[in-house]
Design a protein around this nucleic acid. Structure first.
Lengths: 228, 228
DNA sequence: GGCTAAAGCTAATAGCTATAGCTAATGCTA
DNA sequence: TAGCATTAGCTATAGCTATTAGCTTTAGCC
C-alpha cells in the first residue's frame, strides 16, 4: 500500500495531467494514513490537506467531496482485491482444493490493507455508499467463486447446493468472519501469526462439511482402507 | 429495543432521580434512532438534542461526552446480549447440540438490534474504545462458550482443541461471519428469512467438522449401520 | 415557605465540510 | 519566444459539529 500511482488514470500524457495524477495518488496515500490513525470513518479533509501542505479547499480541485475520496479508495481496494484473488487462482489447482490458496491470498491482502478492507467489507462510514462502478469488481469476484464452486460440484467434491446463492452466502460468511474478527480484534497484526486468519485454510473443509458430495463417506472409507 | 428504562440505575428513589433516569433512557432511545438513520458512527449530539427538544449543551448534564453515550450503549448492548444468550442456554441441551439454540438466540438479537450489534462487534466509531466495565460481559460470554465446548469435548462430541483459545476463535469467527454479512448486506432485514443468519444452525456441525472427536468416523458408520 | 441542587439556557471556542471568487503560476500553442 | 487559457493555489465565508463556561430558572426536598 505504498503507492497509488498505478490506480489513477491520467487524463492525458501532458505534463499537467501527469502532475495532477501524481497529486491525486498522493492524496489517496495520505488519506489511507489518516484512516489508519483515526479509523476508516475518521477521514478528515482538513487533516489530509495539512499533511499535503495545502489549504483544505484546494483538495476539492482533485476530489469533489469527502465521499468521492472514499469512493475512489473503495474502487481501488475492490480492484486490487480482485486482482490479488485472480493471480492466486491462476496458480491454484482447480476445484475445491483451489479455494484454499485463493481465499488465503484474499485474507492476506485484507490483513495487509486493513483500512481498505474495513471500508470495503463493513461499509460503516456514515453517508457513504459505493458507486456501481466501484462495486463492480466485488460482483466479478463472486462470479469467480460461483464458477469454482460449480466446478467442484461437477468434480464430485461438493454437494449440489454449494454453487448456488445459498452456498456462496455461506462461503462468503466463513471468510468474512475470519477477516472481521481479525480487523476488529487484531487490526494491524499482519497475516502471519494472525489469531483468526490462520483458520482460512480450513474453509474448504468446512464448506465441504456443509455441502458434502454424494457418497462422501464411502469415498473416505475407501481412501482410508487404501492408505492404511 | 423500545425502552432503556431497565438499563439505567437510578441513583436514588426520589422523584428527581427517577426523572433523571427517565431522561437518560430517553436520550439513549433517541441516540439509537439516530444511529439507525445515519450509521453507528453517525451519532450527533446536536440532532439528539433537537429530537429531545432541548439545546445541545443540556445533553452534557446527562452524559459527559458523545463517547460516554457510546459507552453506555455499548455496555447495555453487551449486557443484553449476554442475558439473551444465557436465557437460551438455560433451556438448551448440554454439550454440542446446545450451541445451536444459544447461537441462534444471539444471532436473532443481533438482527433485531443491528445498531448496537455494529457498535459492539465492529467497533468502527472513530475515537471510541469501550470501557473495561462495558466490555466485561463479552468476556463472560466467552467463558460460557469455553465451558460448553469443554463439556462437548468430555462428552466425546468434539476433538481436544475445540475448547482451547484456537477453537473458540474459530467458533467466534463462524458466528461473527454470519452476523457481519447480515449487518453489511441486509441491515434491518430481521432474523426470519435472513440470507445469512439462516446458516447459524449449521455452526455446530461445522465446528465439529473442524474438531472431530476421536473415532468420529467409526461412530458415524455404526450409526448408519444401525439405522439402515 | 425557603433553600438547595438540578436542569435548562445563552454565548463562545475551535474544528469540520464545502462553496465562491480571486490571483498567480504553469505550460501548451501560435 | 510571447501570449494566453487553464490550472492550482489562495482567502473569506456559511453552516455544520462538540464542548465548555457561566448564568438563570425551575423543581422539589425539608
Amino acid at each position: 500500500m505504498t503507492s497509488f500511482a498505478d490506480d489513477i488514470e491520467a487524463g492525458g500524457t501532458d505534463r499537467r495531467s501527469r502532475r495532477r495524477a501524481e497529486t491525486k495518488a498522493e492524496i489517496l496515500r495520505l488519506a489511507v494514513e489518516e484512516m489508519a490513525e483515526h479509523g476508516a470513518a475518521g477521514l478528515s479533509m482538513s487533516r489530509v490537506a495539512r499533511r499535503l501542505g495545502v489549504q483544505p479547499p484546494s483538495l476539492y480541485k482533485y476530489f469533489d467531496s469527502r465521499m468521492a475520496l472514499y469512493d475512489a479508495l473503495f474502487g481501488i481496494g475492490q480492484r486490487r482485491y480482485l486482482r490479488t484473488a485472480r493471480r492466486a487462482a491462476e496458480q491454484a489447482p482447480p476445484g475445491l482444493a483451489g479455494f484454499a490458496p485463493v481465499l488465503r491470498a484474499g485474507a492476506r491482502w485484507s490483513a495487509e490493507n486493513p483500512v481498505l478492507a474495513q471500508l470495503m467489507f463493513w461499509r460503516t462510514v456514515p453517508g457513504f455508499a459505493p458507486s456501481e462502478q466501484a462495486y463492480a469488481p466485488a460482483l466479478e469476484l463472486r462470479r469467480d467463486w460461483a464458477a469454482r464452486a460449480g466446478a467442484a460440484v461437477e468434480r464430485g467434491e461438493l454437494g449440489a447446493g454449494a454453487a448456488g446463492e445459498e452456498g456462496l452466502d455461506l462461503l462468503a460468511s466463513l471468510i468474512a468472519g475470519m477477516v472481521s474478527m481479525q480487523l476488529s480484534n487484531e487490526p494491524g497484526a499482519g497475516f502471519e501469526g494472525s489469531r483468526f486468519l490462520r483458520h482460512v485454510d480450513r474453509i474448504p473443509a468446512l464448506f465441504a462439511a456443509a455441502y458434502p458430495p454424494p457418497g462422501a463417506e464411502e469415498a473416505a472409507r475407501e481412501k482410508r482402507a487404501r492408505t492404511t
